[in-house]
Design a protein around this nucleic acid. Structure first.
Lengths: 236, 236
DNA sequence: CAAATGTTTTTGTACTACATAAAAACGAGT
DNA sequence: ACTCGTTTTTATGTAGTACAAAAACATTTG
C-alpha cells in the first residue's frame, strides 16, 4: 500500500479523459479563480479556445455541457454570460428508473421516506389555515372515487401538497422528480399498501396536533414502506 | 387561460433551442423508445448523425452532455454503450454556493435540516454496536482540542458518520455535497451556534433511547438553525 | 430626426481531414 | 495446430475551414 501510494505520487495517473473533460474542468476553475458572478460576460469562444490550446470544436463540447446545466447562457453576437444554474436540472435529466442502478433506486426510495419523516418541523413553521383547508379538500375527495388510477393521482396530490406547504420550492420539485422512482419501486414489488393512518387523519393532526403527533402519524401512514425496508435489511 | 391553452396546442412554441438541445432530447427519447438498458451498444456517431440529419459536430455536443452525466460511455473502435449514470453527478457539478441563487441556497439549507430530522427511522433500522462505538469516538474527541477549524471538521465527521450509519450511500454522498452550502450559509450569517444537546448526548440516546428520543435530541441539537429559519420566515 | 438599410461581429452548423486506439485479421515460426 | 507478433481496419477524438444566422452597431436617406 505504501509502495502504491509512493508510485501514484511519482507517476501521473493516466487519464482517459478526453480534451472536452479537461476543458470543462479548466473552465470551472477559471470561473472560480476569476470569481465570476452570475451575469458576468465571458470571453468569446475563439479566445477561450486559443487560450486553452484546443480547437473551437472541443471547447464547444465543454460549453455545451455547462449550457445544459444552466451555468452559462449564450446569445448571438453578445457572447456568453455566466448564470445561476438550476440546482436540480442535472439531477432531473438522469432520474429515469430504467437506467439508474437498482442500488441507487433503493437509496432514492429510502430518501423519500426520510424526507417525509423530516418534513414536520419545517412544515409547522409554515402552517396556515388556508393551505390546511386546501389539503383537506384533497384528502376528502378520496372516498368518492375508488378507481386505482385516481387513488394514485390523489396520493401524489396529497403528499405533493404537503411539500408545497413546507414552502421550499427546491424540495417540492425534488419530491416531484422522485415520484416516478417511488412508483416504479412499488410497481416492481407489486405492493401498494396503505398504513393505518389515513390522509384525513393527517389533516386532523395538522389542525389540532403538534409536530410530534404529525411525525408519529406520518410514520404510521408510511409504515408498510418501512416494514418493507426492514425486511430487505434483514436479508442483507 | 382556456384561450391561451388552446393556442399553445395549435401553435408550436418557438424554440430558441439549438440543434444540440434538440438532439439531446431526441437521443433520450430514442433510448427510451428502444428501451435500451445499461450495457447495450449504441449505433456509431456517423449513423446517428445521418439519421438525425445533423452534423457529427452537433451530435457530439449532445453526446458530450450525456457522457458528462454518465449516461453513455465510449471507447474507441468498440463504440458507445448506454450505462447507469451516477444520480448525483449532475447535481454535484452545479453545487457551487457562489453561483446558485440565494433562494436555492436557502432551500438547500432547509433540506439538510429536514434530512437530519428524518434520518432517525432509517438510522435505527441499521443500528449496530460497532458503528455506535465509532461514532462515540468521534464525539469524545471533541473536548480535547478547541480550535475552530478542528471543531468544524469534527462537526462534519460526526454528522457524516450518522449518514453513513443509515446505510444509504446516495444519501451519504448527497449530504457530503451539501456541506459547502451549509457552511457557506452559516458563514454569511456569521453564526455558528450549537444547541443544548451535544454530540455525546446524541450518542447516549442511540445507545439506550428510542427513535423518538433521538428525533427530539436531534431537534434540540439543531435548534439554533431552526430558530434562524423561524426568524427568516417571520420577516417574509 | 427617424426609419430603413447595410455592416460587423459572434455564435451555430456543416464538412473534411487526420490522429489515435483498439479490435480483428493475418502471418510467421515452433 | 497453436502462439506470438504484425498489419489492417474501424470508430472515436481533435483540428481547421467555411459559411449561415442573428443581433448590435453604423450609415444612409427621406
Amino acid at each position: 500500500m505504501a509502495l502504491k501510494s509512493d508510485l501514484s505520487l511519482d507517476i501521473d495517473k493516466i487519464s482517459s479523459d478526453t480534451m472536452a473533460d479537461v476543458v470543462e474542468m479548466r473552465l470551472r476553475d477559471y470561473f472560480k479563480k476569476k470569481s465570476f458572478k452570475p451575469g458576468d460576460a465571458l470571453p468569446k469562444e475563439q479566445e477561450l479556445a486559443e487560450a486553452l490550446g484546443v480547437s473551437r470544436n472541443v471547447l464547444r463540447e465543454a460549453l455545451s455541457r455547462l449550457r445544459m446545466l444552466g451555468m452559462i447562457e449564450t446569445k448571438k453576437k453578445r457572447g456568453m454570460i455566466l448564470s445561476s444554474p438550476d440546482v436540480l436540472g442535472g439531477f432531473q435529466r438522469v432520474l429515469d428508473p430504467l437506467i439508474i442502478s437498482p442500488d441507487a433506486l433503493q437509496d432514492l426510495f429510502e430518501l423519500r421516506l426520510i424526507l417525509e419523516m423530516g418534513l414536520a418541523d419545517v412544515l409547522f413553521l409554515n402552517l396556515n389555515d388556508k393551505s390546511i383547508r386546501e389539503l383537506e379538500i384533497i384528502a376528502n375527495s378520496e372516498k368518492k372515487k375508488n378507481k386505482e388510477a385516481f387513488r394514485i393521482a390523489n396520493e401524489i396530490a396529497f403528499h405533493g401538497k404537503l411539500y408545497e406547504m413546507a414552502g421550499n420550492d427546491t424540495l417540492k420539485r425534488f419530491q416531484h422528480m422522485l415520484l416516478p422512482v417511488f412508483g416504479f419501486v412499488l410497481q416492481v414489488e407489486n405492493e401498494f399498501l396503505s398504513g393505518s393512518v389515513s390522509h384525513q387523519d393527517l389533516v386532523e393532526i395538522l389542525k389540532s396536533g403538534n409536530k410530534n403527533d404529525f411525525r408519529n402519524g406520518m410514520y404510521e401512514h408510511l409504515k408498510p414502506h418501512f416494514d418493507r425496508l426492514e425486511a430487505l435489511k434483514k436479508i442483507n
